[in-house]
Amino acid sequence: MHIDLTGKTALVSASTAGIGFAIATGLARAGARTIINGRSEASVVKSLDALREALPGADVRGIAADLSTAAGVAKLVEAMPEADILVNNAGIYGPEPFFDVTDETWERFFQTNVMSGVRLSRHYLRGMLARNWGRVVFISSESALNIPGDMIHYGMTKTAQLAIARGLAKLGAGTQVTVNSVLPGPTMSEGVKRMLEGAAEKEGREIDEVAVDFVREHRGSSILRRPASVEEVANLVVYVCSPQASATTGAALRVDGGVVDSIV
Rank of each mutant, 00 (worst) to 15 (best):
S246C: 06
K158L: 06
P186M: 11
R39G: 13
F21Y: 11
K46I: 06
L5H: 05
A234E: 02
A251Q: 07
R166H: 10
R126Y: 03
E232M: 12
G134K: 09
A173D: 10
R216L: 12
A169Q: 03
V12S: 01
G220R: 15
E201Y: 02
G204H: 08
L171K: 13
F109H: 15
D4I: 12
L11D: 03
T105H: 06
R61M: 13
E203G: 06
A130Y: 02
L171W: 10
D100Q: 12
A79E: 08
T157G: 05
L5N: 07
I19T: 13
L183V: 07
R108K: 14
A252F: 03
R108Q: 12
Q111G: 01
I92V: 13
K46M: 06
T187L: 03
I35A: 02
S221Q: 12
D4H: 12
D103M: 11
L125E: 09
H123E: 01
A199C: 01
T175L: 04
D59Y: 07
G134C: 10
L145P: 01
S141Y: 05
F138Q: 07
L196F: 07
E232H: 10
V114C: 01
P243V: 14
V255H: 00
P227T: 14
E142A: 14
L86P: 00
G20W: 01
M1N: 11
A90Y: 00
A64G: 08
E190Q: 13
T102P: 00
D4R: 14
L67W: 02
W133Q: 09
R254Q: 10
S121K: 00
V136R: 00
R52A: 13
M80W: 06
R135Q: 09
E209V: 14
E203P: 00
A50C: 05
G31I: 07
M115T: 14
A247E: 07
A65R: 02
V210T: 04
A163E: 03
V230F: 02
L48C: 12
P184L: 10
R126N: 09
R194N: 13
V45L: 07
F21G: 04
M80P: 00
P184T: 13
T187M: 02
A14R: 08
S140N: 08
E96K: 15
L86Q: 03
F99L: 14
K158I: 10
E201V: 13
E41G: 12
F109N: 13
E206H: 12
A173I: 09
I85E: 00
V240C: 05
I207C: 10
M128L: 11
S221W: 01
R122Y: 10
E53Q: 14
K193W: 05
V179H: 03
E41W: 03
A200R: 03
L51V: 15
M188F: 10
A234Q: 04
P56C: 14
Q161F: 03
S47D: 11
E206D: 15
M80K: 08
A50Y: 02
R226M: 10
R205V: 11
S68W: 04
H2D: 14
A144P: 04
D150K: 13
I3E: 09
T16Q: 05
